[in-house]
Simulated assay, not measured.
Amino acid sequence: MLGTLFLVFLKMGCISFGGGYTVIPMIERDVRFYGWMTDQEFQRVVSLAGMAPGPIATNSATLIGFDIAGLPGAITATAGMVLPSLVIIIIIVAFLMRFRDHRVVKAFFYGLRPAVTALIIYAAIRFGFISQSGPYLTWSTLMTLLITAGCLYGVLKYKLHPVVVIIASGFAGIILF
């Protein structure tokens, strides 16, 4: 079990371009494939991981590992998730910084932007509707979209600090739900 945990999260760590939210759909796929958690359990893990300090993907790996195999599972899954980043950072510092202005390197990273954006949007949509088993257009869905639109408007128009947006969203949730 620990070997599988390590390899699953090692794979996630190797392909986690764009930050933790881009990896959430991939983690969900593997968690479902191995039957480690239900959709609702996974949603709770992602919620807790998002509220905890640190990267959401690493926090998710830690919580999933702990849920599956206790403390050894948490350590194993976390190690699998962070090891590729550590190796990549060492390689970047040692070699790629010399080539950062090279046309091909710049083009590669510009090409990653649309994929990263799409994966973040997918994670947001999937996470927002993961517990929906009935119709998608409900009071809860409409209020969630209203809060989302308000957050986006506040950040873009008024340059609100993310902490203010998060706290305001929590209070909006208390009022609307």
Score class of each variant (00 low, 15 high):
T76D: 04
G73W: 03
I120K: 05
V93P: 01
T78R: 02
V82C: 04
A69T: 03
I75Y: 02
F127G: 15
A61K: 06
T62K: 01
H102Q: 06
A69G: 15
V105G: 09
V105H: 07
A74Q: 08
F99G: 02
A61L: 12
R126E: 08
V87E: 00
I92T: 12
S131K: 13
A94C: 07
R98H: 11
V104K: 14
I130T: 04
I120M: 13
R98K: 14
P53I: 06
I120Y: 00
I92C: 14
F127P: 01
I92V: 12
T78V: 12
G50L: 09
F99P: 02
G50K: 05
F66W: 11
S85W: 04
A77T: 05
F129M: 15
R103A: 13
V105S: 12
F109E: 04
P53H: 08
D67A: 15
I120R: 05
G80I: 04
A52Y: 02
G50W: 01
T62Y: 01
R103T: 10
L86E: 00
T78F: 00
G50C: 08
R126Q: 14
L86W: 11
T76W: 01
N59Q: 09
I88C: 04
G54A: 10
A79P: 08
A115E: 03
R98E: 06
I68A: 06
P84T: 09
L119E: 00
I91Y: 10
M97E: 05
I125W: 14
M81G: 00
V87Y: 01
S131V: 07
A77Q: 06
A57S: 15
A69M: 15
G111Y: 03
T62G: 02
D67H: 15
H102V: 09
M81Y: 03
D67L: 15
L96R: 08
F108D: 04
